[in-house]
Design a protein around this nucleic acid. Structure first.
Length: 891
RNA sequence: GGGCAGAUGGCGAAAUUGGCAGACGCACUGGCUUUAGGAGCCAGCGAGAGCAAUCUCUUGAGGGUUCAAAUCCCUCUCUGCCCACCA
């Protein structure tokens, strides 16, 4: 009989689906286990082998848990909204709504072939109105609780995708999607207040079981730094010398209060170097430099205003990329006519504008300490500014010592020491340790301690078509009403979000979803508005609050908002019967309580700072609204490695994308699954080289041959089968001579069990290969044969199910109990004692287990070979490691 | 520039966590089988010396700790991923 995988695989796909063996009764199950993997976005090319790699990795774990007695829920869906899908639709000239249906069909077809235990009835697609109704509902909750707000800001704009991007999607000044250079554009956009959760997002990392590298990536992204806010008063020339200038007369006309409040505040993590601050630098976008600034009419005060203004204009026009491409070559212009006062020593120091200082970092202004900061040092050298040393590196007495923070000779001699040390040239703080000095100096100059985060608020507006319409409406009448009611908020019927964003009214929950209309011309226009802005029937609405004419928001939301809650989606929709009318209660439904948080989440590490941060943020926010009972949705997460092909990441441009279909057709899903898992540990990734798949094919064919070999006396007539099986049992169960050694069998059970738990599927498979070889060479009891199939089942679900039935079983192997190893069989009676001389392997002896050192010494020294080796040598010392080795140390 | 991984035969990798380096598989070589191709079976397979038993060398480079290092420590080189003028 030949192993006809395509027939077998088709057959079981059908049976499993009909019997719904992977569809737990979500309400009634006793031991829920939510096995989640990142859902795919249905890319143009269909499922590629990298997806399959990830899915299989997750599925094996799920199947293992199912066999361990859990009711495993392994859902699947499509993340089909978003720019990626839309761009593809544009490219091939098909409407995204039409294309999504085509992709969906293709994806699900492929996903059915790969042998995963998906709960098909619960599948979801983010572009279905019944799904995005909830995406909108969540946005409305965020809005009402003041976590969504509108702000005008210079944002990342991709001229090719014609939309704004989140910080996380702007890589090296280029669009993450298409690689186009990003430009800055001032637009009013919706933001979600993720920064409010910065500290908690950081702290909670300590109590979730995630790979360290993903935690570190999030930590760095959140970027907590402790420092101080310090004010530097600004003085015009008149304060420095007595010659009156035109600027001075202007300045004198300012009121007293205004004059007092003229200062620049900087954020620094190194207030201990304050005495070394020899100039200030403002970002080009700094508010002080705005002509409209009421505090200081800067254009009148600054003598070289023209030059300054042109510098500001020039740097604003620069793209992100240009700023980076210029490398470390810093430019800047001094603001002549004004000086700042160093609050530590009263010195007047120049003020510069330079674009190496960024607006959105800290306060957008820095105190420059060229003596102890590399960037300031470089700048000061170029423009001949004063460099002052205020920290003396402390030398330890032990020059070889390389303990952390101890400077090397090289570092001390270099002109810019950025480490800690002892203060000098710092007045009364001389001699103080720089770490201590941080707070002391901050206090001395009346500064404030401040914790700062790198994390920015999440910009969710997209000026595109293929996404979730942001469910808000702008009403002029309500705007006035809100602005007037500000003083009597108590009586106001407006929510927090409506008060904070005057005129913006949330779409009432009963009106959700705001459906994305089908429009012919869905292409982005590039004028900073979505294509929906030209659809009158869409945006012309009545205000839900007051009934007057109002305008609907026409931007759609970032697709990451869709994926930030999909794990909840599987439990509240999917199976339509469960859809709950009362929206408020749905997130705290019994299903949510029962199944969440997710037990095991597997996905790509590339989402470390996008999806995985947003999802945590959203859960926390919903938790605080008392809508969820947990704040960390994924207590356990594992990242699979990257599957590469021909040494490079799979990509269309390189032409090395591998489609799994051909391989499934040629070798079967079982073979492809096992091959992918055999490459390397899941968390490491691997290089797809198809020639290796033959090894697995051979293995599967040998298994098939072994189980259908007539020598095993499995009768061809199904009715007789059990009888003959019994004969098999009687024949082999007590003939130890021929049986597979219990030791090997139980060792394999242990190995496979532990390897699946740690996702080391490659070594689990190799141990199964070893066991099969032993089985082929001896004869095995039926129960041994069953055990082997069970161990194989998570990896190769089809062939194991087929053979399970061929040896007379009636129920699915995937519902069978996972074998448990018996430690009694693991004990060795005899072991190989390694004999070393001076740590070098020389010989081995087979000796009884658990012998002590004396016995081992005796046995070893009686051995002829060992005697010879030790002849004439003086034994200095003997090292004995029980059940392992004995080492004779000689001169 | 910073962070995180990693470097082991011709290739993917394994190594009980400090104890026989190279399990398992691919590729390759020889033999058997086959009309042939494919497939299968048996044997070999890190390098060097030897008929052989056996010996020497070998885990990116160099040093150290230890009876014993792929594994721990230090210095360096290279590769991949992530972040990047973050004050």
């Amino acid at each position: 009989m030949k192993y006809n995988f395509s027939k077998i695989e088709k057959k079981w796909q059908k049976v499993w689906r009909e019997k719904k063996i992977y569809e737990p009764d979500l309400l009634r199950t006793k031991r829920p286990f939510y096995n989640l993997m990142m859902f795919p976005y249905p890319s143009a090319e269909g499922l590629h082998v990298g997806n399959m790699y990830a899915f299989t990795g997750s599925d094996i774990y799920g199947r293992f848990k199912r066999m361990q007695g859990y009711d495993v829920f392994e859902p699947i869906g499509l993340d089909g909204f978003g720019i990626h899908s839309e761009n593809y639709a544009i490219k091939i000239g098909v409407h995204p709504m039409t294309q999504s249906k085509i992709s969906e069909k293709r994806f699900y077809q492929q996903l059915k072939m790969i042998g995963n235990g998906f709960a098909w009835d619960e599948r979801l697609e983010t572009y279905n109105p019944n799904y995005y109704k909830w995406t909108q509902w969540i946005f409305v909750q965020m809005f009402k609780h003041g976590l969504a707000y509108r702000k005008k800001q210079g944002v990342n704009w991709c001229p090719s995708c014609k939309t704004v991007l989140a910080d996380e999607q702007a890589l090296n000044g280029k669009c993450e999607r298409c690689g186009t250079t990003i430009i800055k554009k001032d637009l009013e956009q919706w933001f979600l207040k993720i920064t409010k959760y910065a500290e908690r997002l950081l702290q909670n990392l300590n109590r979730i079981d995630w790979p360290e590298k993903v935690k570190i990536a999030q930590k760095n992204w959140i970027g907590r730094s402790e420092g101080a806010l310090i004010k530097f008063p600004i003085k015009s020339r008149i304060d420095a010398d007595k010659t009156r200038t035109k600027a001075d007369s202007v300045r004198e006309n300012l009121g007293r209060n205004q004059r007092k409040s003229a200062f620049v505040e900087v954020f620094t993590t190194r207030p201990d170097t304050l005495f070394g601050a020899t100039y200030l630098v403002l970002a080009p976008e700094h508010p002080l430099l705005k002509i409209s600034n009421f505090q200081l009419p800067i254009s009148n005060l600054i003598e070289n205003w023209k030059e300054v203004e042109s510098y500001i204009e020039k740097s604003k026009k620069k793209t992100e990329e240009e700023r980076i491409m210029e490398g470390r070559e810093k430019t800047g212009v001094e603001l002549k006519g004004i000086k700042a006062v160093n609050p530590a020593n009263g010195e007047r120091i120049p003020v510069w504008v330079a674009d190496y200082v960024l607006t959105d970092v800290g306060t957008g202004a820095i105190m420059a300490v060229p003596g102890h900061d590399g960037r300031d040092f470089e700048f000061a050298k170029k423009y001949n500014l004063e460099i002052k040393k205020v920290i003396l590196p402390v030398l330890t007495k032990n020059p070889v010592g390389s303990a952390q923070g101890v400077p090397s000779e090289v570092a001390i001699q270099s002109e810019c020491w950025v480490g800690n040390g002892e203060l000098i040239n710092s007045g009364k703080f001389d001699g103080m340790d720089s770490k201590k000095a941080r707070w002391a100096i901050t206090e001395f100059v009346g500064g404030k301690q401040k914790v700062q985060y790198r994390l920015r608020d999440w910009l969710i507006s997209r000026q595109r078509y293929w996404g979730v319409p942001i469910p808000v409406i702008f009403c002029e009448a309500c705007k006035k009403r809100v602005e007037n009611s500000k003083f009597e908020i108590r009586n106001s019927k407006f929510s927090k979000g409506e008060l904070e964003n005057p005129g913006w009214i949330a779409v009432p929950e009963k009106d959700l979803p705001v459906k994305l209309p089908f429009i012919e011309d869905f292409r982005p226009k590039g004028k900073g508005v979505s294509p929906l802005a030209s659809v009158k029937s869409f945006y012309e609405v009545k205000c839900p609050a007051c009934g007057t004419k109002a305008r609907r928001e026409t931007d759609v939301s970032d697709t990451f908002l869709d994926s930030a809650w999909y794990y909840l989606g599987y439990l509240i929709l999917g199976n339509q019967k469960r859809e709950i009318k009362n929206k408020k209660s749905s997130f705290s439904s019994p299903l949510i309580k029962k199944w969440l948080p997710v037990n095991m989440y597997i996905g790509g590490a590339e989402h470390a700072v996008l999806h995985l941060l947003y999802v945590r943020f959203l859960a926390m926010a919903l938790h605080d609204m008392k809508l969820l009972h947990f704040e960390e949705p994924f207590p356990k997460f594992r990242a699979h490695g990257l599957l590469i092909s021909r040494g490079a990441k799979m990509s269309k441009s390189k032409g090395n994308v591998v489609n799994p279909d051909d391989y499934i057709k040629k070798f079967g899903a079982d073979a492809l699954r096992m091959y992918l898992m055999f490459l390397a540990p899941l968390e490491q990734g691997g290089d797809f080289q198809d020639r290796g798949i033959l090894g697995i094919t051979r293995f599967l064919e040998r298994i098939y041959k072994f189980y259908s070999d007539p020598k095993l006396r499995i009768h061809p007539n199904p009715q007789k089968r059990s009888q003959f099986t019994n004969i098999r049992i009687n024949n082999f169960v007590d003939s130890d001579k021929f049986a597979v050694s219990d030791r090997l069998l139980h060792k394999t059970i242990k190995k496979v069990t532990e390897d699946i738990e740690t996702l080391h599927y490659n070594t689990a498979i190799s141990s199964l290969m070893i066991l099969l070889k032993q089985m082929e060479e001896s004869e095995s009891s039926l129960s041994d044969c069953q055990t082997f199939l069970k161990l194989l089942a998570p990896f190769a679900p089809f062939i194991s199910e087929e053979l399970w039935h061929q040896i007379g079983q009636k129920t699915s192997i995937h519902k069978e109990k996972w074998p448990v190893y018996n430690p009694a069989f693991m004990k060795d009676e005899i072991f190989k004692l390694i004999i070393q001389i001076n740590g070098v392997y020389r010989h081995f002896l087979e000796v009884p287990a658990n012998i002590n050192q004396r016995e081992a010494e005796n046995l070893a020294s009686q051995n002829e070979r060992v005697k010879n080796l030790l002849k004439g040598q003086k034994i200095k010392k003997i090292i004995f490691v029980p059940n392992r080795l004995i080492n004779f140390v000689v001169d």
